[in-house]
Write a protein that binds this DNA or RNA. Structure first.
Lengths: 230, 230
DNA sequence: AATATGTAGATTGTTGACAAAATATCGAGA
DNA sequence: TCTCGATATTTTGTCAACAATCTACATATT
């Protein structure tokens, strides 16, 4: 007896509403600082206000929305100093994950990690040479996700994803300059090497360095763009 | 013109309900794995079910309760492998915070940090010599909070607090053996020294080491207690 | 003109009721 | 006795209405 499971993952209306609001925010239909009107959203989405309210509340926990009692919910505005904090937080978690991945690989708990990382880096190199920036972007995310998965720490991964999304929200503009990609790729190689060597400390350091460099690249690009705008 | 502010801090009913449920969990009135009955809680607390529901939903984001659609909310059960993950996560954030604190102190952004840390360590040493374990416990928390505060990263602090609370839930039994306290104190000294020297990398390493040692001490004590139980 | 006050409208906070799903109960048949 | 299945009860999901609070605008006051 076998059948396609129906309704699996189909969850509550509130969860679907949450996903929809989340999409609206990440895709820019709702901009930073904008107020979320419960009634308006409920009409647009065709559910009751209570359901929308529940969705908004659950979003607040992820940092995408700020709640003020009796005043409502607002799309979180990320300041520049917060961006630095987000980078540091992301770096801390990523470094920890790389250390854990190295340990687990060394113990034989992640047998496929080596080939997965090698394949990813190879594809990334190909994307770089072909100057296929969108592919590079996807592969870049995959690289980090591979290591997060290998760390086998779901809560850390959840936090990492939240931080990533909030950062993504801030820097809508791509930061994909050819030289940046080349350097980033080298850093990936260094991380993968340390992890596959099973060296926890080296993995952590390489990961930390990667995020730090990423922040520097971000700041440089942001400054340049700001000058270009002026 | 001056008057006492009224209604400050008084928030919504749902927030108060959340705080109350949180208390019930942390104080053990609701045990791990137990189901949270919305109606029951609403009667006990004298608010409507919807309000309780909102409180429970907001707690889910902090990891204290797990939600299952159409089945309800359950107090999160922390497994042993999760404990290790929590230690690692806490270590990552604490190490990052110590690094940031070192940088900020070096830049003159946290002028009071040096004396605060020195005072804390001195009091801790006094508590150790007097064998006042409860005081030691409070001072230990304060030490970590001082550094988290100096890092000036609110989101990191929020996550740290969540993790800390979840860990606290798991290990009800104290782990305060005299020799442990002495070693822990030495590690604190090392951290403070690195931070006040403004050395980011050394601060991170010292913090990481501290949490790692803490985990080892925890495992040793837990194993010993398990043997004693058998 | 600038500031305070009052009032109407809009929005959030809270509740109770109904619908849908899950769980418990109980009996029939092997 | 045990398993399966129908039924009753409990519990969650969703909604609409009411109450409390905030916001915006008009009016009055200096």
């Amino acid at each position: 007896m076998k059948a396609r499971l129906i309704g699996v993952g189909r969850s509550t209306l509130a969860e679907e509403a949450r996903a929809e609001i989340e999409r609206m925010i990440t895709e820019g239909e709702l901009t930073a600082g904008e107020k979320l009107n419960e009634l308006e959203l409920s009409v647009v989405m065709g559910v009751s206000r209570g359901t929308v309210r529940e969705a908004i509340r659950s979003l607040a926990g992820s940092g995408l929305v700020d709640l003020i009692a009796n005043r409502g919910a607002f799309v979180h505005e990320t300041t520049l100093s917060e961006v630095q904090n987000l980078y540091e937080l992301r770096g801390a978690i990523f470094a920890m994950a790389c250390g854990a991945a190295a340990r687990r690989y060394g113990q034989g708990d992640e047998p496929r990690l080596a080939e997965d990382l090698a394949r990813n880096i190879e594809q990334m190199n190909a994307a770089r040479e072909a100057e296929e920036t969108p592919n590079y972007y996807i592969l870049n995310i995959e690289f980090h996700d591979l290591l997060l998965a290998a760390a086998n720490n779901p809560k850390a991964k959840a936090i990492y994803d939240n931080v990533k999304r909030e950062m993504h929200l801030f820097r809508r503009r791509g930061l994909s300059i050819a030289s940046n990609i080349a350097r980033s790729l080298e850093e990936h190689r260094a991380i993968a090497e340390a992890v596959i060597a099973g060296d926890e400390n080296a993995s952590r350091d390489a990961a930390n360095e990667h995020i730090r460099q990423g922040f520097d690249r971000y700041m440089a690009t942001a400054t340049r763009q700001r000058q270009a705008d002026a």
